[in-house]
Design a protein around this nucleic acid. Structure first.
Lengths: 194, 194, 194, 194
DNA sequence: TATGAATGAGCCTTCATTCAT
DNA sequence: GATGAATGAAGGCTCATTCAT
């Protein structure tokens, strides 16, 4: 038996690549640097990933899925409660994955990668909207296309990850409460809205 | 920053750089290409900008200011009306400057540039919030820090620029109306919110 | 030169190498490709051949001997008849082995291999010249050193292999007849030649 | 005024490439080596030749034309005399250009280059055959397609260049006389040839 | 001052060869 | 003995920057 394909190594390479991008930016990512950081010979990287684009693309998919969108599945809670829980969850995720997010953004900004990746990865992250749909039935949520709602809320929330990341946990509560109030106000069906 | 006279040349170079990035992406930007496109010798570019980073940084400042944030100054209109007008304005701006926006993002994603630029360019784009402040006094807007409000709204709206850009003008009205409804709902002081 | 038993494997490797060169050229020959095609591990190739040069050299010897020179042994036929038969034979061989010939040439052109091979392989393919010698005795062939004669004829004929290979069998007869006429004329002792 | 394109440099690069191939073979030709030998930076080579293939291709054309085929134009001499003069000339050329010839062969053997070059260079070296045509009219040369005649003679003679190159000038006369006798015999219309 | 040729470090990738299993 | 993962030196090429003219 020969030496066997080592999934540890694959992981090490991906990790190294991510770290490298985080430190020096996607544009400065060099395969040599990745190899060195992963403790591996240059050629070895190519045993696990056909080329630079594939390596980056793979990493992209990995990280993209870790911070996708708020998750409005229906856990049976009252709508507003469930909604705020999902939002909090999403914000927490965003804070936790600021680094990943940054990486994902770098790739999405880059023409070279985006094009290639788009071609090969349909990547439909369909997030559940059951809770919102029930909210609409109950008349507490505006009758607006759920997809639009999710998009609006995600857009509004996502950037706060970066902001809150640096804030101590107990200092987050106040701004988060404000933000949630804005979120709920946005989607709530109100009387003034006729 | 430019060293010598002939602002025509300086302008030509910046234009060329912007066009080049638009076409091939920041990562593919080469000084030779910029020079060629600007109808100037390679070396000349270096008379006007000390190096690539400075050139890109300068371009960044230029474009960053063209799409900053929604502009809530007080034109004396009723608050809601004024708010929606500002939002519409902002959305329109976003659509019109998708390309610039993309460029700005590319740079903001890129560590190499960001770090240098941050050091040299404080760049505080303070947007007026007079309208929101009046709204709060009148009791029609939630009593939340105006800066946070603007941020929330900007975040939520900005990405729609990309989306609506591809849509025909008359087909934009429907989604925009939905979005505005969400925006106003977000910030409006409602009874359920006590 | 092979190190161990299993001549099947050895053969498979040589075959694979030859096929690989035929398809992609000597310059693109990679040990990995050879191994893969031979259904063998990369390392195994090195058990049979010390290195790439040795493998190629071995292949060279194999193929070189399949297309050497026209074979003027004396089968008792009238000289001219025998001569033309040998030439036809040689042309046919050349056509059949164009591929091998190409390979041999590729190696002979390549310094890297040639030098090494020369050192290790004297390789004297002495072709019989009995027929020519009898011809000279009979006075029908010019009194010129047989080696020179063979060389001249081989040189003149060999390239036609490449040309005639693509021609349908029955269309070969005409040009071959012309060529044979030239060959015989070349070596025939004629009166004008005194 | 900037530094001007320097045709000396272009020449130096071509020379260096040729020398490099002669010494180490086409397969070992590296752009770095060429640059170093030409006394130039790596990048400079690319200013004169878009890439390796183009450099080699250009060199090929240059050298290919220096040893093409025997030149049977009609200088008014008696046919046989003219023919032998042309052959002698051709042999001399071959001797003088053995190195070039070797280079040309290396390229023609190589799949990678040949294909590319073929595409871009029709390269019809049409050699004059006026002398042969007159010879046929006068009835002293066989009535065989002139192109075939030239090909036959070229094939037969070319390899002798390599052989005679190493021989001192005065020792060449004897073998050359033999060879010319063979050549003339080949194409001469003789009575035995009915 | 403008020009654009020249520079050379650095990048991605390949591949002969080794060696742990 | 066979396997194929690992190695790392090289190779082709690009491009920011310099500098002779």
């Amino acid at each position: 038996m020969p030496r066997q394909r080592d999934y540890r190594k694959e992981h090490a390479i991906l990790d190294a690549a991510q770290a490298e991008v985080l430190e020096h930016g996607l544009e400065a990512l060099s395969m040599d640097a990745v190899a060195r950081r992963a403790g591996v010979a240059t050629g070895t990287v190519y045993r696990y990933f056909a080329n630079k684009i594939e390596l980056v693309g793979y990493l992209y998919v990995l990280l993209k899925s870790s911070t996708a969108a708020p998750f409005f599945d229906d856990a049976g809670l009252p709508v507003r409660e469930g909604f705020e829980k999902a939002c909090r969850e999403f914000i927490r995720e965003c804070c936790a994955h600021v680094a990943d997010e940054k990486f994902v953004e770098q790739i999405e900004c880059s023409d070279a990668y985006t094009k290639r990746i788009e071609e090969e990865l349909p990547m439909t992250f369909d997030t559940p909207t059951a809770l919102l749909d029930r909210g609409k039935e109950e008349g507490v949520i505006k009758d607006i296309d759920s997809e639009l709602l999710v998009e609006f809320i995600s857009n509004a929330l996502r950037p706060f990850g970066r902001k809150l990341e640096k804030v101590r946990d107990r200092d987050r509560e106040a701004p988060i409460r404000d933000i949630l109030s804005l979120c709920w106000g946005a989607i709530a069906a109100s009387d003034n809205d006729a």
